[in-house]
Design a protein around this nucleic acid. Sequence first.
DNA 1: CACGGCTCTCGACAAAAGTCAAATCAGCGC
DNA 2: GCGCTGATTTGACTTTTGTCGAGAGCCGTG
Lengths: 321, 321
Amino acid sequence: MAIRPAEQLIHKAAWLYYAHGLRQDEVASQLKISRASVAMYLRKARETGIVNISTSTQLFTDDVMARKVEDAFKLDAVWIAPENAYVADPSTDIAVLAASVFLELVKKGDRIGVAWGRTVYTIADIMSYADLQDVTVVQLCGNLGAPYSYRPDQCTMEIARRLNAKGLNFYAPLVLSTEELAQGLRAEPVIRDQLAGISDCDLALYSVGAVDADSHLVKCGALTPAEMTALRKQGAAGVIAGQVIDAKGEVLDCDYNRRVISADLASLRAIGKRLMVVQEDSKLEPLLAAIAGGLCTHLVVGAHVAERLLEHAGAASKKAS
Amino acid sequence: MAIRPAEQLIHKAAWLYYAHGLRQDEVASQLKISRASVAMYLRKARETGIVNISTSTQLFTDDVMARKVEDAFKLDAVWIAPENAYVADPSTDIAVLAASVFLELVKKGDRIGVAWGRTVYTIADIMSYADLQDVTVVQLCGNLGAPYSYRPDQCTMEIARRLNAKGLNFYAPLVLSTEELAQGLRAEPVIRDQLAGISDCDLALYSVGAVDADSHLVKCGALTPAEMTALRKQGAAGVIAGQVIDAKGEVLDCDYNRRVISADLASLRAIGKRLMVVQEDSKLEPLLAAIAGGLCTHLVVGAHVAERLLEHAGAASKKAS
DNA sequence: CACGGCTCTCGACAAAAGTCAAATCAGCGC
DNA sequence: GCGCTGATTTGACTTTTGTCGAGAGCCGTG
């Protein structure tokens, strides 16, 4: 296989084209190949992250609303995707923004924790490629043998692939049938090491789930709709990395949570940058819970959710005074 | 001036085009402007660093020779520009590479020390734009009222401008006529603070000058050719940030050095990443001195100099054994 | 209020980049 | 040795992008 020379050529072509600003035909004659090949190499270079094209996400932090949300909830940084999007699908817009923000936050040598969900998978799916060799992507929670394409391990691996990073998977079920078994598995060296390594992460990427019948936990069979309703009554406000949290952002004391294998919230809070992405307008309550629990330092949301966050903050401060 | 809406438009256009991958005509219809304007906005976006296109410099570190030089001289990283360049001017090639490497090393929030010289100015000149608001570029040595376009303050300001960073200039002459005056000026609060702030830098960018009649010090009138020759006899091996160093990379004990206002070498050594760029083949001796003095952790050189570095290292180790 | 001077915007053309089917080449089993 | 398979490369074609001069809008000035 002539992959070595090809790799070299891709690098050289990318170098001449992007760094030196030569035209494709000039590159072609320098490298003594046809221009069409140059075009192909350049596409590969972009796809593999040999060249990085990134747009500043400043536009979305400059927003006054973003500043207000930052202040109101004491977050490190907030990005707001305009709702009156210029593009067809507003939820895609949030994911594209989230992917850019994510890439901006990642540094060389980082260890990144990734949770699971439709949102995270969408982000992974549209994320552009980058070449960050010494980055590790770890899975934050156990697996779910769901028929979905956004299984936890898929999210992790896809992001690792895009970044050209190492992917560290987590081969345990998210939820077991008994508490004892869960405890036993958590004590298992392979699993224990994985869980222990989570707090060493520099950056976490996750979303928050709603506590309703549409939740992934229900769709994947981890919980029945009835159990979900029951959890709601017990004070469940959201789902983070497979665990059910209450309105204060603490793990809900319930049978289900005790059977889950996932990063405990203290480990998550130990991660410096916790990037939370919320696409759906309906996830206001879970998001508030996550913020209350200090599970989020960096936030990407749509304008609509941002507005409602501010309304809520305003109401709360009024009540307090 | 309709510059505010324009700024917004540039951001939006860049966002839709680069992040969402729309075509220019699609962007144009979304934004309700002509495609020609979109093309113009995109150019501006590239020029101002709203979008970043960077190519991985891996190709040049992958080189086995680069590894050998790293090992032989205990450097953190070495990049080697191939001498049989694909481009017209080999020295430009080194500068382009150096600029890429430099941009790769800069992080948000960094403080960067920049020295002066043709090499540094060339790098500044071809460096692409970036948007790093919270970066500070400081000048490492005093000014020289030369008729050259690569005055120390110019180098600093140009790099600051390209990075969209703050530029901190150094308004003192590089060399004074008496030692007393130099001492007095160094004690001056404005100057003292500047000099004291140098060791807080995260990254330094400089080259090394040769001790000959072609040196900038001679061309700018700081030293006469005769003085230069005399210094050589006293053991001068190179020039760093306006100061004359000996073969061990220490400040040469001479009248000239005592009259200079510049970063002292200890401050330079305190900077974490010291990127040295050498274009000319003739600068082998100064480079060896700089390396010996621990003034360089990251190195960008042409293949020819790299070869000679290795020869030298080989000879030295043979002699030692 | 008309007048330059200024920048921004547009349409049309030229240049460059992307794409695809056909051709070429290397490796491999028969 | 021969022909097959699959990947790579090429030339020709189409689409997309860059550029330029003309014209439109805006402001301060006489």
